[in-house]
Amino acid sequence: MRISAHVRNSADRHEVTLRTDGRVQGLTVPPRTTGPGSGVNGGELLFLALATCYCNDVYREAARRGLQVERVEVDVEGEFGGEGEPARNVTYRVRAAAQGSEAELRELLHHTDRVAEIQNTLRAGVPVTLAEVKVEGA
Rank of each mutant, 00 (worst) to 15 (best):
L122N: 10
Q68V: 13
D21Y: 01
T91G: 15
A87M: 05
R19E: 14
G100F: 03
H14Q: 13
V126K: 09
R2H: 10
N56F: 13
R71V: 03
R95M: 03
C55G: 15
S101H: 04
R19Y: 04
T28Y: 10
G66L: 05
Q68A: 10
Q99I: 12
S101W: 02
A87H: 01
R123Y: 09
R106H: 10
V128C: 02
R60V: 12
V24W: 04
N120C: 10
A131I: 01
R65Y: 06
D113P: 01
K134P: 00
R114E: 14
G81W: 06
Y54H: 03
A131D: 11
L108Q: 07
T28S: 14
Q99M: 07
E117F: 13
L27F: 11
G37S: 07
T17W: 08
V24Q: 07
E77F: 13
H111K: 03
G22Y: 00
R65W: 04
V40T: 04
E70T: 07
S4P: 05
R32C: 11
R65N: 08
P30K: 10
V16W: 01
R19H: 06
R93D: 06
Y54C: 01
T34H: 11
G81A: 08
L45A: 02
E107F: 07
A103R: 08
E102G: 15
L48C: 14
A49G: 05
V16T: 06
P127Q: 08
S38K: 03
A5M: 12
S4V: 09
D57F: 12
A131Y: 02
V90H: 03
E79S: 08
E102A: 15
Q99D: 12
A5V: 13
R106A: 15
S38A: 15
A124K: 14
E44T: 02
